[in-house]
Design a protein around this nucleic acid. Sequence first.
DNA 1: GACCAATGTGACAACGTTGTCAGCTAGCGT
DNA 2: ACGCTAGCTGACAACGTTGTCACATTGGTC
Lengths: 338, 338
Amino acid sequence: MSNRPTLKDVAAQAGVSFKTVSRVVNDEPGVSSGVAERVRSAVAELGYRRNHSAQVLRRSDARLHTVAIVHADATNPFAAAVHSAFERHLRTAADTLVVSASSHGDAGEHDRLVDLFTERRVDGLAVIPVGDSPGPALRRELDRNTPIVFIDREPGIDADVVASDHHGGACAATRHLLSHGHRRVGFLGSREQSESIRQRHAGFTDAVEESGAEPVVRFGLTTPDLADAAVTELLSGADAPTALFAAQNLAAVGAVRALHRLGRQREIALVAFDHLEIADLVEPAITTAPQNAEALGRAAAEVLLRRIDGDASEPTRFVVPVELIPRGSGELVPVRGA
Amino acid sequence: MSNRPTLKDVAAQAGVSFKTVSRVVNDEPGVSSGVAERVRSAVAELGYRRNHSAQVLRRSDARLHTVAIVHADATNPFAAAVHSAFERHLRTAADTLVVSASSHGDAGEHDRLVDLFTERRVDGLAVIPVGDSPGPALRRELDRNTPIVFIDREPGIDADVVASDHHGGACAATRHLLSHGHRRVGFLGSREQSESIRQRHAGFTDAVEESGAEPVVRFGLTTPDLADAAVTELLSGADAPTALFAAQNLAAVGAVRALHRLGRQREIALVAFDHLEIADLVEPAITTAPQNAEALGRAAAEVLLRRIDGDASEPTRFVVPVELIPRGSGELVPVRGA
DNA sequence: GACCAATGTGACAACGTTGTCAGCTAGCGT
DNA sequence: ACGCTAGCTGACAACGTTGTCACATTGGTC
């Protein structure tokens, strides 16, 4: 990785001063065409590439055309989709390299990654937060007015955020179920500590309350197995719900499994928040309210670019709507004989 | 993103020379404890962070503790899992930051990303190739002996590769089917141009030939719909296969859908190469031969670290075994009445 | 008291690049 | 022939850091 050619090497090869080479590689005016040609062929011959570190060092206020995104978990398909849209937008709209790293859910590592990226100087940061509050490195950068945008989750601090309309989406999904005549509706949630799950629960509750229906709420269903068990238990009791709202991915997977095992998949209505890989592979297909990862990533890119361009106005909160996609499971009507 | 404090700023604050501050932040010996303490509190007060660009520039041969991985598609769960293992290993074993970017499948963009990362100086590169042959930037870096490891696909050039045992895995999966008594076995493949699909086909063919069974081969099944149609057609003919080997993800999804629609999921055996999200969600569960993403990522990290540490031996090819996971669908025996 | 080693500290160069400025040449008008 | 301008080109400083070396101070030894 060493002995790369420098401006000097190219200059020696072309028989000019290194400043002239600099001019050529930066397309600056004031180089005669003959010399420029000689320099260009020397550049090609040696395979010269500008040293980004030196460039950044010299012009410390200039755009680096690099932003970083710090993940909680890059294997999460939703995070990957957001990242992908974010990256595509920045690459095409601003010729900016998006680099990323993942903390695998560890808050300390998360903050350390922020630190490593700031050491390496980037134009801005996108963060999918881990935990409730920003770590010291993130806080320092916020104080320093480094362009930072938080994606998907509340940072627990006053800063730019791009997030889904968890409340509105859950509310719409629940209303959708209620509009088909259900009077007892189950809520299947994962970690109650999660702000987004709390908001989905609030949306669910608002919809249920405005209709006078009866909610049945279960939290802590962080794995399909737990959700499966919870649904099995819910449906076996008296006054079992006739419709279920799965507030999260894995809870929905467990619910689907339980309904199929019990053979009641055409009887109990189900709407799932978030994208479901298996939505179309089961019968009936699952009605979902997927977060719009594409819109989130794109919005985050736009917010960040505006900050990088010097916008110093108050932090904004950009809310991306969540649209319901009816596929069958959410349009089932309650059956009498339970 | 500007006016960050430098060594000089900290030095002024602490009333020492900037070189002394440098010594303190690098834990070099030869600073009295009193001075060191004063410097450390100045560092904390100003929120000083070392400028990585300047450091890299000064010590151009030193380790940067940064490697890059260039994806074809970061939203592909398999690639994400490989990336995740790769990153975890480098972070924990070598305190190295893994940065990544995705080309979204565009070969030109892929090579451009390689170029951008080399401009920014990294210790090494991991590449999940796009297309058949490396672009000019990648070729230049290979010539320059930059540590580079190719993951999952053949680079079409002599270089370090870490890849799954496509041939062996397909061979074992097919033998597994044959050992349950099947004599007519179908192969469901996607793009025949793909080297890994070719290898899986070769493994399938070897297993079939050594047993004297009859193969039925379909290529081009790049979407579930196409695979669904192909399976429907295959099973409707005379001499229909009694077992299927799906050589790829999406082909397997289509096959599952077709079998369930035809109600023959307990009759036609099926083994799928690669991980299947729905493997456990259908009845019978799908026997799969998943690539070991964890092992691939880890092996790639190890190969790359060895190169970074100066190993200059011949390029190696590291093959990661593919283990069969029996779940039910692959253990079905052929039934008489077709 | 003179010498020496050990210790702590700072001055300075260098990394590869870009910005500033000065110098050189050619071409033009007088 | 002379000066002037425009157009090229190069010398040099600076970015923030680390490596090298020299200097100053201390304490111990003969």
